[in-house]
Computed example of a mutant assay.
Amino acid sequence: MRELTIDDVKAAVKGGSVFACGGGGWVDHGLEIGGAAVAIGRPKLASVDEIPDDAIIITATAIGAPAGNEWEMLGADYIKAVKLLMDNYDGKIYGIMTPQNGMSSTINGWLPAAALDLVVVDATGDIRAHPTGKMGSMGVASRLDYQTIQVVVGGKRSTGSYLELVVKGTPAKTSNILRTASDMSGGFIAAARHPLPGSYIKKHAAIGGVSIAIELGKKILEVEAREASGSEIIDIICSHTGGKVLGVGKVQEYDVHYSGAFDIGTVTIDVPGNPLKLHIMNEHMAVEDSHGKRLATFPDVITTISAETGLPVSVGHLKPGMEIAVFHIDKQHIPLSSSVKDRTVYPEVEQALGIELIPYAFDNE
């Protein structure tokens, strides 16, 4: 195991922003929570090989829509969510993992790990950010034989929206309850869930997901230190990840709306000669060209990057006229967890988006 430092926080947020795919929280929030983690304790990052098979690992996350502005999530909320799960679980919790990478979600569990003497596990429920908790649940989303515990804590105190909720039951039912709680709390809320043994994590998670984000972040920070241009930073991201740019153009149309703790809609990038349409449900879930040809689909990494600065731009910060590079990593180049191989997690997202995902997500089977 190795001790996580403030340099790891900065790198995790920087690299995680690429895997955020337009969602995955906020840079400022990630730096704030990560900074608090290494200030109050010494969180340790453990590889899955360092975790006993019978050690119980939980997932720490945040649930909601990144473009929302009525939420309030404090560092204490992340800690309390984990503490409430520990209080309601008949056993000892050993470590914490995140369900996804993101602008802040890569470091989701670092603060409660530091505060409660737990390890941070170098694995993710999905290498990239995704809209539903089921998509980061490592294959337990549809299981009827697995009874989980899920906890949410947070909400704006000044409006009376603060909530604490502990639910037990199947992942499918409890996940829907948590999404409703997130909406009621103001649009984003801290969560802890799914106690699972290390043996299960080793088999079903995206192994090394946190280190992958940190290493990419370090490469980007090195280039930024040389005052590189936006195009040079994008080139480094492509070469380090095996990804590519699908097109560069200005944001032409922005049609994204908030609905039930989700940001849903489309964004059109006016790439010269072949505009690209991005389908969004919190994150970028699919890309089509002007002829309706599908160019990328979840679980591919799909990220909007400022052509000027080389920095990823979240869904909520995309504005008409902004020059954007649409970045893509094919799923064959990233570790895939059981979460994204579970066909049952796709239909509700397909219905919300009004497009098919399954035929493209499973096109190599």
Rank of each mutant, 00 (worst) to 15 (best):
R2I: 06
E3M: 11
K14D: 04
F19Q: 09
F19P: 03
A20R: 07
A20I: 13
A20L: 08
G25W: 10
W26Q: 14
V27W: 05
D28E: 14
H29Y: 08
L31R: 00
E32R: 14
G34S: 06
A37Y: 01
A37G: 09
V38G: 00
V38H: 02
G41C: 12
K44C: 01
L45F: 06
V48H: 10
D54P: 09
T59H: 09
A60R: 04
G64M: 14
G64P: 15
N69L: 04
K80Y: 13
L85R: 06
G95Y: 02
M103E: 11
T106R: 12
G109S: 07
A114N: 01
V119F: 03
A123K: 00
M135P: 02
A141Q: 05
T148A: 10
L163A: 01
E164I: 05
L165M: 02
K168N: 15
K168G: 08
G169Q: 10
P171L: 03
T174F: 13
R179C: 03
A181V: 11
A181H: 03
S185E: 00
G186N: 02
F188N: 14
L196Y: 02
K202Q: 11
A205P: 02
G209L: 00
I214E: 00
G217N: 02
I220H: 05
E224R: 15
R226V: 04
E227V: 07
A228P: 05
S229F: 07
E232K: 13
I237E: 05
G243A: 05
V245D: 11
L246W: 03
G247K: 01
G247H: 06
G249M: 03
V251M: 02
Y254H: 04
D255H: 08
V256N: 02
V256K: 01
H257D: 12
S259M: 09
G260Y: 14
A261C: 09
F262R: 12
D270G: 05
P272I: 14
I280V: 15
M281Y: 11
N282V: 13
N282A: 13
E288H: 14
D289K: 10
G292N: 10
G292M: 12
K293Y: 07
L295R: 10
T297P: 08
P299S: 06
P299K: 04
D300Q: 15
I302N: 12
T304E: 09
T309W: 06
T309K: 14
T309Q: 06
P312N: 04
H317G: 06
E323M: 12
A325R: 02
F327S: 01
F327W: 14
I329P: 01
D330T: 08
I334T: 15
G354D: 14
E356W: 09
E356C: 11
D363K: 03
N364G: 02
N364T: 10
